[in-house]
Amino acid sequence: MAVVFKKTEMLTDTPLHYCPGCTHGIAHRLVAEALEELGLKGKVVGIAPVGCAVFAYKYFNCDMQEAAHGRAPAVATGIKLTNPDNIVFAYQGDGDLASIGMAEIVHAAARGVNITVIFINNAIYGMTGGQMAPTTLLGQKATTCPAGRDAKVNGNPIRVSEMLATLDGPSFIARCSLADVPNIKKAKKAILQAFRNQIDGKGFSFVELLSTCPTNWHMSPVKALDYVKNEMTAQYPLGVFKEVK
């Protein structure tokens, strides 16, 4: 019998600190597998955000830098311009990217900096205990909108992929979901495509991954997958929004 599935060497042996059933772990695995399959071992630098993935530098088996909250695209830009031969990826959450770091991601995309950004959208601030994020759905409860997000008071959720797709810099923008096996496989393809674009020098590539937060959504891990499949996907349609051939 042959091994058909095993943990990739591009993940370290450090156990993930994520909550049980949190799909951050799946996202980590997909990125790491992509790095392995593309032969990027020893050529890649990753940037960890501030948020639940703040410890990502312990998990990705490559050189890593820890960025200040929201600033990963800027840090990635500095790295990429300094060592253009490196493959550089930033791994960010929705608070990190779409709130405090919105200027950084928009300008990195507009510049078309040849980096890859993995954007975990779980519609909540996880590490800090469940506050509303820019991607929190209308009506969704969070610790800073306990009665449910109200557009008049809390503004509207932001569809980041579509927004960035209006810019000319990006070469690839896709939104995928981690809610079930078929979608996870599609997400893997998208992540591979994003890194290939970087390898081929096509410029800024971006994959948004709809993800769960069982703890702060107050749902079981399996029920949280349904929430992604139904409510989240309704607000954040899946697909490729930009693709430069």
């Binding site: 960025a67 600033r71 500095g78 300094t82």
Partner: peptide, 15 residues
Amino acid sequence: IAAINMVYGSAGAGG
């Protein structure tokens, strides 16, 4: 803010 963080990235990469 972005500028100082770009410097952080570059310096961290040995620049």
